[in-house]
Amino acid sequence: MFTEEIEIMKLLSEKYSDDIRIFFKSPKSIDEIISFEKETGIRLPDELRELYKLTNGFDSNIAYMNLWSLETIKKHFNEGYNDWIEEGDSDKYIVLGSDGSCGYLLMEIATGNYLSYGDEGEVMPIDSIKDLLCWNIDHIYDSVRDFEGDDKVNNYLERNADRL
């Protein structure tokens, strides 16, 4: 489901290694994902499960968002990590990642819906993780300012223009 997006992010990281560093963590097995779900009591949406089977999160110096590992998510969830929410909401959401500053990617526990929580407190619904990865690729590619330099990335962005 996300093979192309991960492949393109790796390609950009390799091609523009002077500017972009993306570190992909080792993938999780379905048993490890189920163990996370049992330990936290949170069922991950199928698309998120699929992503964690490809990578247990990623960190980037330039990306629109970083996806936290299941271990980091569990740690923050167990600690009631909530410097970004209204009092009493810490049991409604889990934090899946950040944008490198004060913004967060959230998942509403009851529905599995995704939200972006900005550094000014603005909340934006996100339809899918695939959309988020597409935005990430666009942001990363835009940051290197080499728009004509890679047909594979340009073709991907053209095919996914409706997500941007």
Rank of each mutant, 00 (worst) to 15 (best):
Gly118Ala: 09
Gly112Thr: 02
Ala63Asn: 09
Trp84Asn: 10
Lys75Gln: 12
Asn136Val: 01
Cys134Trp: 04
Gly100Arg: 03
Glu87Trp: 08
Asp142Leu: 04
Gly112Gln: 02
Ile129Tyr: 12
Glu108Phe: 02
Ile137Met: 01
Asn66Cys: 14
His76Phe: 08
Glu120Ile: 08
Met65Trp: 13
Lys92Asn: 09
Asn78Tyr: 05
Leu132Asn: 04
Asp91Thr: 07
Leu106Arg: 08
Ile140Ala: 09
Ile140Thr: 13
Ser98Lys: 08
Asp83Arg: 14
Phe77Pro: 05
Phe77Trp: 10
Phe77Gly: 04
Tyr117Thr: 01
Asp138Thr: 09
Val123Glu: 12
Ser90Cys: 07
Ile94Phe: 01
Asp127His: 13
Trp68Val: 02
Trp84Thr: 07
Gly121Glu: 09
Gly80Arg: 09
Val95Arg: 11
Ile137Thr: 02
Tyr117Lys: 14
Ile140Leu: 13
Lys75Asn: 11
Tyr64Ser: 13
Ile137Tyr: 00
Ile73Ser: 14
Ser101Lys: 02
Trp68His: 14
Leu115Phe: 15
Asp89Asn: 05
Trp68Met: 10
Ile73Arg: 14
Asp83Trp: 11
Phe77Cys: 08
Asp119Ile: 00
Gly103Asp: 06
Trp68Ala: 12
Leu106Gly: 04
Leu96Gly: 02
Cys134Leu: 05
Ile126Gly: 06
Thr72Tyr: 06
Ile137Asp: 00
Tyr117Ala: 09
Ser128Cys: 09
Lys75Tyr: 13
Ser128Trp: 14
Ile126Leu: 12
Ala63Cys: 15
His76Trp: 15
Leu70Gly: 12
Glu71Trp: 06
Trp68Glu: 11
Ser90Thr: 06
Asn136Lys: 00
Ile137Ser: 03
Asn78Ser: 11
Ser143Ala: 12
Ile62Arg: 15
Pro125His: 05
Ala110Met: 05
Ser143Met: 10
Leu133Arg: 03
Leu70Phe: 14
Asp99Thr: 11
Ile85Met: 14
Gly103Trp: 10
Ile109Phe: 01
Asn136Gln: 07
Ile137Gly: 00
Ala110Phe: 00
Ser101Leu: 03
Lys92Cys: 08
Trp135Phe: 15
Asp91Phe: 01
Glu122His: 09
Ala63Glu: 04
Asn113Gly: 00
Leu96Arg: 01
Glu108Leu: 02
